[in-house]
């Protein structure tokens, strides 16, 4: 196995709130290889966005604070390098796109100049060249009539178009390595969602960059991801190749997630979606044990005491669960 592009090791992030300290991320680890798509899945509030924002240290500080762990990008710990060096990486080697295309572009500048700005920040290009490059990026993300759209303001574009512009903005660098897409299709219509996902996949192939896709939608995962990391309440509970996870979901939470999908065979029989009973724990009072213990059908006494070590099930499939040994291997 070659050296991963990005490797997150035991990341811990706290937020101080009026109610008390929220330990939002409690030791998250996963890795992304060059050119692959990793989907970070989990319901809202599980910490997947916080994890993504931690990579480029864009957590609002205060109230947030990264309290431990390593984030190695091409072997360099992003949590240790000085701010200016990190800024050089942002937008050039690691770029991000966000959930809300409506509000993620600056409303008072034309989209073309916003893309040019990023290009001029990271390269020694001349303005004419930056303009040409920006135009070609708009073309690359399949914006019709890019020449005319160049001078458009964000409010003149539809949500799908804006998300395309966001992607162009994220690609505005000579050498993109990793794109972090934080719920890039959640705010869009279903038809547009499919287009944007197809575009992301297509671009990833063309450019050869890796994609960290944050989503709560298992359907999206099945469509585009190579590998998956499932998060629950600040922990990764299962990680592995997408097929293995879908074929053999080993953590009770992953199973619950998949069972609640309409594509679940059970759904076809009963026409009723299965929901995971119980609710997400309070992140302030939650102890050291497995966060899923209070909802878990296989809960054991040790579950509430400490979080388990990972069990390797296959070459590329890990799960963090005490109940795993007893499970019959399928």
């Amino acid at each position: 196995m070659d050296e991963p592009l990005l490797s997150i090791q035991d990341l811990k992030v706290d937020f101080s709130t009026n109610r008390g300290l929220v330990r939002a991320i409690r030791g998250v680890s996963f890795a992304i290889r060059k050119g692959e798509t990793l989907a970070l899945v989990g319901e809202s509030g599980c910490g997947k966005s916080v994890t993504a924002h931690s990579i480029t240290r864009l957590i609002p500080t205060p109230p947030g604070r990264i309290t431990g762990g390593k984030i190695l990008f091409e072997g360099v710990d992003l949590l240790q390098i000085p701010e200016p060096k990190l800024r050089d990486l942002r937008g050039s080697r690691i770029s991000m796109i966000f959930q809300e295309p409506m509000t993620s572009l600056n409303p008072v500048f034309p989209i073309g100049s916003q893309i040019m700005d990023v290009l001029l920040t990271h390269t020694k290009m001349k303005k004419v060249d930056a303009r040409a490059k920006a135009l070609s990026l708009l073309e690359l993300v399949k914006i019709p009539a890019p020449e005319r759209r160049f001078k458009s303001y964000p409010h003149q574009l539809s949500g799908g178009m804006r998300q395309r512009v966001m992607i162009a903005l994220a690609l505005a660098s000579p050498n993109p390595g990793l794109m972090i897409a934080d719920e890039p299709t959640t705010a869009l219509d279903v038809t547009i969602q499919a287009q944007i996902l197809a575009l992301l996949e297509d671009l990833k192939e063309k450019i050869g960059m890796a994609l960290l896709l944050i989503t709560h939608d298992m359907g999206v995962v099945a469509e585009v991801a190579d590998r998956v990391a499932v998060m629950y309440a600040g922990r990764v509970v299962e990680e592995g190749e997408v097929f293995r996870i879908f074929e053999n979901p080993s953590h009770p939470y992953t199973r619950g997630l998949l069972e609640s999908l309409p594509s679940n065979p059970l759904y076809k029989e009963t026409k009723r979606l299965k929901a995971i009973p119980g609710s997400v724990p309070d992140m302030i009072t939650l102890g050291e044990g497995c966060p899923f213990a209070n909802r878990c059908p296989l809960v054991r006494p040790e579950c509430t005491l400490a979080f388990p070590e990972p069990t390797t099930l296959d070459t590329d499939h890990k799960v963090w669960c005490y109940a795993i040994e007893e499970e019959p291997v399928l």
């Binding site: 864009l58 942002r90 809300e100 993620s104 572009l105 008072v108 990023v118 920040t121 505005a172």
Partner: peptide, 26 residues
């Protein structure tokens, strides 16, 4: 606190420029 400032930060635009151009203009 707006999203587009986050976008600018994640694009590596220098702080000074974010404050005095991206944010101030709005």
């Amino acid at each position: 606190g707006q999203d587009y400032i986050k976008t600018a930060k994640s694009s590596g635009i220098p702080d000074f420029k974010i404050t005095f151009v991206y944010a101030l203009r709005n």
